[in-house]
Design a protein around this nucleic acid. Sequence first.
DNA 1: TTAGGGTTAATG
DNA 2: CATTAACCCTAA
Length: 223
Amino acid sequence: MEQQAIEIYRQPLEEPELFWAPIEQAEQGLYGFLGDLQLSVASGSPRGLQIENSGARVEDGVLILQLLEEPQDEANLNDWLSGDLHPSPLLDTNAHYQTKCRRSGRRGTRKRRTSPWNPMFFESRVSREYTSRKNNSRWTAKEVEILVQGVSKFGVGRWVMLKRQFFKTSIRTSVNLKDKWRNLLKAYQGNSQKTTQLYLEPSLVEQIRKVAEKHPYPNKRHK
DNA sequence: TTAGGGTTAATG
DNA sequence: CATTAACCCTAA
């Protein structure tokens, strides 16, 4: 896993303030790499938080809730992050998810005082109810082309690898890639006449069929 | 993390 | 309204 520095943007809000990384899928993968997070106070200007992590990928997303009181120095910050010593500055985390994080997050009313870094904070969200999708951006023919290249190279079921090699900076997550491939098969595999919403060059469709034949989905490696 | 069942937005 | 496509949830 490569090192990656993620700049955290600071957005002026009513307090408490919210920090977040300029990355997609803020809701997902959050607790997965908490353990790898290392935070430091950026010395430059603007002053802010910087996250360095070894486990996270940009597409994992991370959402940072900033403390009310500005950390004076790194020690202070680490202290705050590590401990029960400091009560959470968040008066109502819920309100902030509702107002500032679009459709993500819990819906009910619930105030809690707990550090955002406390695992408890995230556990409550693990089985979060399904609410609504975050984005719905359509795939382009070009993206499909790249996906087909990827599957033809790695086969089916190596979505993370495919993501890293072919969709490194893309919005698409490894799961998105898997889903898209599944949709492509539905649309173009078999002989039934289906209406597709995205026009693909016949040659590309042909390619999809070939690759699909060579690499049957699913790969039962995990089953 | 993957596979596969589900949900929902967009489309014709 | 029926279907498609994108996205979500979660067992294993």
